[in-house]
């Protein structure tokens, strides 16, 4: 059940996208998401879809793997779509009872669904092809200028990377604790909100105790391996832009130019 969440997971394989500098992927994802909000006609989305398709192909991550990650937010998507479908005023198509579907409603609903889907797949490509360590490395380097303002960039990056490493472990543990308590007759599923919140105590206490224990152990293990913050640390995988990264930036620029140009062409809009 909890294992279905693929957002934030890394998919092990070797591809051009995997080998790209994380800064390219971070910047690229950000720009890609922004571009999605610029389009005013279907052509823009088509361009974005083609671009996304190429990147997916290049990443060698099976498409079904990404779709699985979407299941978790399917419900959210559905609600947004339904709301927009029925509540947007405009030219009427069909109408029954108190609900009306309009041309504008259909367009908005479709746009939002497509946008959301692309947004999620787009950002999941980044996490699927970049190890969290690499990702935090990228962020650390991109945000380095902030150190001037006393922002503890290295520490925050390290914290994030550790958190990411422990999420799957703690999820598995939650599953086990839940089972252990269900075996003792605990009921997590019925009753009103207060009853349910109370039922969580036998789950949360062991989980927190275990998390603190792990934190304590990990701190000890890190210290014993001579970790003492970012000062004087070297990198096993230092970030240096390669030729492929420069090519990627070019492709990205090209994509932005093309998609926004065609995406904002007014005459195509009915």
């Amino acid at each position: 059940m909890l294992r279905d969440i693929t957002l934030g997971q890394y998919y092990q394989t070797d591809s051009v996208i995997h080998r790209l500098d994380p800064r390219v992927k971070l910047g690229g994802t950000l720009l890609y998401i922004i571009s999605l909000f610029f389009f005013s006609n279907p052509l823009g989305y088509l361009a974005a879809a083609v671009f996304l398709g190429i990147v997916i192909k290049l990443s060698r991550v099976p498409f079904r793997f990404m779709v699985r990650g979407m299941r978790a937010i399917l419900f959210l998507m559905l609600i947004t779509v339904v709301f927009n479908l029925f509540l947007t005023p405009g030219r009427e198509i069909v109408s029954f009872w108190k609900l009306t579907i309009t041309v504008e409603g259909v367009w908005t609903a479709v746009t939002i669904a497509v946008r959301l889907a692309m947004l999620i797949i787009g950002s999941s490509i980044m996490t699927l092809t970049t190890t969290p360590n690499n990702l935090t490395d990228g962020m650390e380097k991109m945000l380095r200028p902030l150190r001037v303002f006393k922002v503890p960039v290295h520490e925050v990056a390290m914290m994030m990377s550790i958190a990411l490493r422990f999420i799957p472990l703690l999820m598995e543990e939650t599953d086990k604790i839940m089972k252990a308590q269900i075996a003792r007759g605990a009921d997590f599923e019925s009753g009103n909100i207060i009853k349910r919140a109370k039922a969580l105590v036998p789950l949360l206490v062991p989980l927190f105790v275990s998390a603190f224990r792990r934190a304590n152990d990990l701190a000890m293990a890190m210290e014993s391996r001579c970790y003492r913050g970012g000062e004087g640390r070297t990198k096993m995988k230092p970030l240096v832009y390669q030729r492929r990264d420069r090519v990627a930036y070019l492709c990205l620029a090209l994509y932005l130019a093309v998609s926004i140009t065609v995406g904002r062409l007014v005459w195509l809009w009915i």
Binding site: Y10, S161, R165, L218, A221, R225, C226, R228, R233, M236
Partner: peptide, 16 residues
């Protein structure tokens, strides 16, 4: 184990 990938974890000590 601190690293997300085996080799990155092994490199953690020397990095420090």
């Amino acid at each position: 184990i601190i690293g997300q990938v085996v080799e990155e974890d092994v490199g953690f000590g020397p990095e420090n």
